[in-house]
Design a protein around this nucleic acid. Sequence first.
DNA 1: TTTTGAAGTCTCTCC
DNA 2: GACTTCAAAA
Length: 714
Amino acid sequence: MTRIYPPRPREVSPSARDLRAELNEEQYAAASHGTGPLLVIAGAGTGKTRTLVYRVAHLIDTGVPPERILLLTFTRRAAQEMLSRAERLVGSATARVQGGTFHSVGHRTLRRFGAAGGLPPDFTIMDQGDAEDLMQLSRAALGYAQKSKRFPKKETLHSIYSSHINTERAIEEILYQDFPRFVDYADDVTRIFADYTARKSDRNLVDYDDLLLFWALLLEQSPDLATRIAGQYDHILVDEYQDTNLLQARVLRGMCRDHRNLTVVGDDAQSIYSFRGANFRNILEFPQQFPGARLVTLEQNYRSTQPILDVTNTLISRAEERFTKNLWTARVGGDKPWLVTARDEQQQTRFVVDRVLELHEQGTPLREIAVLFRAGYMSADLEIELTNRKIPFEKWGGLKFLEAAHVKDVLAFLRVADNPRDEVSWYRIFMLMPGIGDVTARAMIQSMAERAWDPDAFTHFVPPPRARDAHQNLSRLLRVLRRAGDDGAALAEQIDAIRQLYDDILRERYDRPDPRLADLDQLRTISAGYPSRAAFLAALALDPPSSTQDLATGASESEDDALILSTAHSSKGKEWDAVFVIWAVDGWFPLARAAESEDELEEERRLMYVAMTRARNHLAVSYPLNVYSSRRSMDYSMDQLSRFIDRGVREQMERVVLGDDDKPDATAPPPVPESPIDLRALLLGRFSRGSGGSGAGGAGSTGSPGGTDDPAVR
DNA sequence: TTTTGAAGTCTCTCC
DNA sequence: GACTTCAAAA
């Protein structure tokens, strides 16, 4: 059937777009760069994305077909931002520009070319939690389940493994550097990884790291295959390059083997993803990796007022290592950023809410205001208050809808229907069933593996008497799922069928089942947008709804005005008219666990820098003097101003001390201790007390600096 | 022997 | 507030 499409809106013609007039000199140099490698060092707010978007426009104008341009980013948010801005500039042609996160493009590549490299096309993607569960199965299968408590947990094993893949360091090296308390287990860990790897390929499972690794391997496998994969694109542009790791650099080398048209943009001062193997030295070594690279540096900031830049420049100038210069702006005026001292968390919350309303009344849309914090849970009190006062908000980052146990439970059913070899999901389902525990679940999986994962293998399993009902119900459900059609509508029916069995289990397990049942309703709703079960599952792993709010409000309301609450990580690349950074308390920002190493502390500093540079006109940093929480039970208090807000930074800020009436109290003396306590010494003191005489027999521990072999530090 | 309930232990960032 | 660990029940 032929459909009549409305006529395309007329795109801006190349001549109508004057790059020179719309960009500054450096931006223009980057955007109009011809062929060959290009490195753009771009400070916060210097028009990085703008430059990249104009570069895309320029390439299209000079005749490069849009579908032969690939835009790569590290986070989904950055990918969306860039593609949508490009579309606004050049119109519908950009709809054909290829792009996404490294992982999603890797996924597309594997689906299309994986078979040529021996990878079955119908693999299932595991998220991090799934991968950890599979790691646990490997760990148990090799008999390490009961072993001493000093043996790494499944999360730790996975983190070591992921680090091994992404940083290309040897396992011994990772253990020595990052997990010195486990160095003796190098052989055991390696054996578990071997089993994990074999298990993945046997079960047709692929983890996040595999999406990158297999992509790199396909490119290196044969010149012919590499040419087919790399030959899809003429130009590759990478945003946030400081957040890439060695494996991604390897992928890029492979993708640019036949041309060298690679543009990378980044800022070493904003490198905040080392926990994922990112290394900002990648950006510094770019000229060596791609000889002849042109270097362009952007230093004019278009975002923030001078007072805000003064503070953030001072903050980042304290960094041990950095390569970008101070930013400057032509914007004049503006208030000094505030440093707000609150009595306690509740007063901090009231301050934020009152000030948000004040700004809103002065005409700032809520969507132009953001509250940023170090970790997702730190906004709990604020969320309650906003809900009480009926102020709409949207939360970015933090705990995800899909990480909730009940959502993963339902998805597990869909996944085994999609991939009968998905051991992780089988185990998860079995453990849900009344009368089935670890032993029976393992026996069932064993029996199915022996029958080569025949879809009917489960039905033929003879369960112990107590599990007979569960076995029967499950058999029936699996038959329904297998018979169901494979399109969006059938997907909703499948979820309904699963819920007939699962809802009762859920009600049994949780005290307050209603919000969780509502989550499942939402899952059903979004499933309707996908053409098939496999597409749905893959999309959920790679491009999950960014917040529960997204789901709750639906697309129609997403235009609505809402205050943004975000982790500092998720805020990168965005900007707001007014920004609040809350919980600027030592131990919270930086987190106490980062005090362990200089490198981590430096990364926390860059993270604070990222958070504060999001502000255009108003910036307030707040901290409560008293922290009432379980932390109080510890025998020291950490509720002191973040060490990053040192004297030099404070001098450029407006001090606000909140009084009893929540109003600024001009008479109160600034309650900031001039020399912050040594958090690290306190932590070490606590741990040495807590862990008894652990230092006694440690021959290897004597020489390690900074006590990083402390058992209490994960 | 296996499952289940209860007490106890932490709590990050993202694909 | 979610997940692990331990002890009691089936």
